[in-house]
């Protein structure tokens, strides 16, 4: 049972950032803009957040620093995504190319800035954010140790974002309009919705969540940020597709992918898995292979937003 608790606690560290970033991608793609810059945006978000913690840790107490750092990451992510939005929406650029540019830019930029400011590229911070046990909830049998011990507030923020995302996309006027712009922007425009504004909103939300996700990814698993989020932005893209562009399915995919990642990281400590003798790289590969297989079967009637990746040109209405 202890192993199960341990695995689930670890899994949260991997699943929650995937969930947050994939939901970010969801907003962007639902508005009609492909955002493969998630990886780069995470890197910038993680850098700004950890650097803020690095500077402010001595001044402010634990949890408030984390919350402020998350806000910093969100703003940083939004600024990066603005660059992508401008290319994709105003300049009608190829969205894959502009996203690739950001992915190459981000790690180079943070290494350059980190070295210019502090000499080394690693941004150190002290991890004082772990909550040993959430009051009251942590002492519930079974559920307590699973979800409310050795946890981070980021976990609960991630779940909150999931619920809010679902509410916003499916229960508000804004969500309906956003989705319309991703499915049929001409129709949306014809009834007076500003496609450009909606797409900007989608990309900005994705930037905010990707920036936040970058910080959320780094905090539990390390005590320094070394200019990389290990391909998590791309994995989040896979989560988004595996979740078929639907919030709750994305949550399921994030849990599945997070579990695979956890197993690859900790399997040497779990006797049953050691007995199987499967190398860790296989577990790391499974999410990508699974996504490919799913795509192969669903490609013909894909749930992807119909107009994603196509720049909206008012003239072609």
């Amino acid at each position: 049972m202890d192993i199960l608790y341990f695995v689930i606690q670890q899994m949260m560290y991997f699943s929650i950032p995937l969930l947050i970033v994939a939901l970010g991608g969801l907003f962007s793609e639902r508005s009609g803009v492909i955002n493969i810059a998630l990886e780069g945006t995470m890197v910038i978000g993680a850098f700004c957040g950890t650097f803020f913690i690095n500077q402010m840790q001595g001044v402010l107490p634990g949890q408030p620093v984390l919350i402020l750092a998350m806000l910093v990451s969100i703003v940083a992510g939004m600024i990066v995504s603005l660059v992508h939005a401008y290319a994709a929406i105003n300049m009608k650029a190829d969205q894959t190319i502009s996203g690739t540019a950001i992915n190459i830019f981000a790690p180079a930029f943070v290494i350059f800035v980190a070295r210019a400011i502090q000499g080394v590229q690693q941004v150190q911070f002290i991890n004082q954010f772990r909550v040993d046990s959430v009051p009251v909830l942590g002492s519930i049998p079974v559920i307590g140790p699973m979800f409310f011990q050795n946890a981070y507030i980021t976990t609960y923020i991630g779940v909150t974002i999931l619920v809010i995302s679902w509410l916003v996309l499916y229960k508000t006027r804004f969500g309906l309009r956003l989705r319309a712009c991703g499915e049929h922007p001409q129709a949306a425009d014809s009834v007076g919705i500003s496609v450009y504004k909606m797409r900007y909103a989608g990309v900005l939300i994705s930037g905010a969540l990707a920036g936040l996700g970058g910080l959320v990814f780094i905090i539990p698993i390390s005590t320094n940020f070394n200019a990389t989020v290990s391909g998590y932005g791309f994995l989040a893209l896979a989560v988004l597709i595996f979740g078929q562009w639907k919030p709750w399915k994305i949550a399921g995919a994030a849990v599945f992918f997070g579990l695979m990642k956890t197993i690859s990281a900790v399997y040497s400590g779990i006797p049953i898995l050691v007995g199987l003798g499967i190398p860790s790289n296989i577990y790391k590969m499974i999410p990508y292979v699974a996504t490919l297989i799913l795509l192969a079967f669903t490609g013909k009637n894909s749930q992807a937003p119909k107009a994603e990746g196509i720049p909206y040109d008012k003239g072609s209405r």
Binding site: A87, A93, D94, I97, A116
Partner: peptide
């Protein structure tokens, strides 16, 4: 100076190359 500046330059080149159509 960190050699990463080259990747920064490259990425900006890619970004503006995406504007080719415009």
């Amino acid at each position: 100076l960190a050699p990463e500046i080259i990747d920064i330059i490259t990425s900006v080149i890619i970004y503006f190359a995406a504007f080719a159509l415009f």
